[in-house]
């Protein structure tokens, strides 16, 4: 069964051009799908729609179902219960969604408790286990820290640790590494891949970095002005892009082994 089914889904804001326009996509268990596109392509709006996080005034059409249940018909309580346990989300700067005046440990503990972990000792063990799994080698220090005391890369690892704690069936990631330094980005991407292998979590990743999408995904979707113009097996799409927009996008990427743009002289 598909975890996520999107059928002819559109999002628009009062009379404006559709931000998302007739997108169809389904994601199966354990699959990693990346949505790539340039700014304004609608890729983030699509992801926010999947969690029912669209701003007020957004009008949607078409079907968007999680685990076979239409998200717009779900009571708010049921949707909230789903978020965190079966579906998790990470953002570009996870730190911004943390409470700045509460210690990481307190926030992490509350998150686990709300999602049904009654046993305090088990909650503490799980926190340490997850932080260690993400190579935060001094979990006690991390749990005692306030968000501002950690580097951006460490906060992002905490965010991923929290998001993965309850072994969600679906992880939605919106540019999760775009604000990180390149060496840290590479490690976080690697860890997302490992977590899929160990927990079977399906991932939908929104990114502008086509190299990251190619590395991580089974399938890649390309969005342009709200439309999903191409969707396919990631190797196939990169080696044999069919849509002219995809071709243009791939040609524009500056690669480390490309012919250089500067003329050699001397």
């Amino acid at each position: 069964m598909d975890i996520l089914t999107i059928d002819n889904y559109s999002v628009s804001y009062d009379g404006q051009r559709s931000a998302v326009d007739g997108v169809s996509l389904s994601v199966s268990r354990g699959e990693i799908v990346s949505i790539v596109g340039e700014s304004g392509s609608g890729k983030s709006t699509l992801l926010h729609g999947m969690l029912g996080l669209l701003p007020k005034g957004a009008a949607t059409r078409g079907r968007l179902a999680l685990f076979g249940r239409e998200i717009s018909e779900m009571p708010a309580g049921e949707r909230r219960a789903l978020c965190g346990s079966r579906v998790s989300m990470i953002f570009q700067d996870t730190g911004r969604y943390m409470n700045p005046i509460a210690r990481i440990g307190a926030q992490y503990d509350e998150f686990l408790r709300i999602h049904g972990m009654r046993d305090g000792a088990a909650r503490r063990d799980l926190q340490r286990e997850m932080l260690l799994k993400l190579h935060l080698t001094d979990p006690e220090r991390v749990l005692r820290a306030y968000p501002f005391e950690l580097s951006g890369g460490m906060r992002q690892r905490v965010g991923i640790a929290m998001a993965m704690s309850l072994k969600p069936e679906l992880l939605l990631a919106d540019e999760p590494t775009s604000a990180l330094d390149v060496t840290v980005q590479a490690q976080v991407i690697r860890q997302m891949l490992e977590l899929r292998e160990s927990t079977g979590t399906a991932i939908v990743l929104v990114t502008h970095n086509i190299g990251v999408a190619a590395y991580l995904s089974d399938r890649i979707g390309v969005m342009q002005r709200g439309r999903l113009v191409e969707l396919g097996d990631s190797q196939e799409l990169i080696e044999h892009p069919k849509h002219p927009y995809t071709r243009g996008l791939l040609e524009a990427v500056v690669e480390i082994d490309d012919e250089r743009l500067i003329a050699n002289h001397g």
Partner: peptide, 22 residues
Amino acid sequence: LLDSVFSTGDRGRKQIAIEDLS
């Protein structure tokens, strides 16, 4: 730095060593 660059040809093959960020 070079090992951290993602090229479209990579496809999950390359190994990225995980470090202790502290």
